[in-house]
């Protein structure tokens, strides 16, 4: 059944140009920022070394194992999370615009299968994106780590898992908004306003205990800003680990978004 539903979803995007254009923009944007940041940083250290009386050690964002934290942090910024979320919203709301959700049910899918297919597609997107970041990380890491040991390469690679959860949670939110609102432009607007303006304001005014429980905030907390040598000097310390609480809260919200989607599709006329 999983295979059948995923095959159907793949057939639907087969020659859908807009989908592939958005995916290409996402992949190109990620690659550009991964590889571009490195060259800017390299230039800056070269420059500093030139003018500095004391020797500055080689700092690379991309040596193992730090590369995993640094890359997933970059890929997990709001801008990059919004793109796959927009893709999901488009695919969900298209079904209502083209009234194909109705036809799919008439042709023999159940309402639950309609939602399950999209949930599986979200998982597939999150997995593919994580794989893409992992491949980039592996390449960059190998180029920037003089001594490569499996132990160093794999340590901290659990940041990839956290990144997977970030994409998953955020895209599930997008999917639910798509099923609730059914119109692409409204759904996109609501997701953007909520995640960029609404929740940050809500977080600002919330009591401390509530802050880590809000969905977008919990997702953002999964991977915090990586420590750099410079920050350590200034005594700023961010969490370099992934907190179990953030993982659980993200998983809770992802499940809630799926449940609400299933419920709303069951209860409405199509």
């Amino acid at each position: 059944m999983i295979k059948k539903l995923l095959t159907i979803e793949m057939l639907k995007i087969g020659s859908y140009r807009l989908f592939w254009v958005l995916i290409f923009i996402l992949a190109a944007g990620l690659a550009a920022s991964f590889w571009g940041v490195e060259s800017i940083l390299q230039e800056a250290t070269d420059d500093a070394r030139h003018n500095s009386p004391i020797p500055i050690p080689d700092i690379s964002l991309y040596s193992f194992p730090g590369v995993w934290h640094n890359l997933t942090f970059m890929a997990g910024t709001r801008m990059f999370l919004l793109l796959p979320a927009f893709v999901i919203i488009l695919l969900v709301t298209n079904e209502y615009t083209f009234r194909t959700v109705r036809q799919n049910v008439i042709d023999g899918l159940s309402r639950d299968q309609i939602v399950s297919a999209k949930i599986m597609f979200v998982i597939l997107i999150a997995f593919s994106l994580t794989l893409y970041v992992a491949i980039n990380g592996l390449l960059l890491g190998m180029l920037h780590t003089p001594v490569q040991l499996w132990g160093t390469i794999l340590s901290k690679s659990w940041f990839l898992l956290a990144f997977f959860l970030e994409v998953l949670g955020f895209s599930m939110l997008a999917m639910m908004i798509g099923f609730l609102v059914q119109k692409s432009i409204f759904a996109l607007g609501i997701l953007f306003v909520y995640s960029v303006i609404g929740e940050p304001i809500a977080v600002h005014y919330s009591p401390e205990w509530l802050k880590p429980l809000l969905p977008v905030n919990a997702i953002a907390r999964l991977i915090e800003l990586p420590n750099s040598a410079m920050m350590k000097i200034f005594g700023i310390h961010f969490n370099e680990n992934i907190s179990i609480q953030d993982v659980l809260v993200t998983l809770f919200w992802s499940t809630a978004f799926c449940t609400i989607s299933i419920w709303v599709v069951r209860k409405r006329n199509l």
Partner: peptide, 30 residues
């Protein structure tokens, strides 16, 4: 419902897909 063929109101298909690709979606569902 897979044993029933039905057209309700207007024809509902994916505009960006060809006739054959659209029918593949239906065939897979059925």
């Amino acid at each position: 419902r897979t044993r029933i063929g039905a057209v309700l109101e207007q024809p509902n298909f994916y505009p960006h897909l060809t006739a054959r690709q659209n029918l593949r979606v239906v065939a897979r569902i059925k």
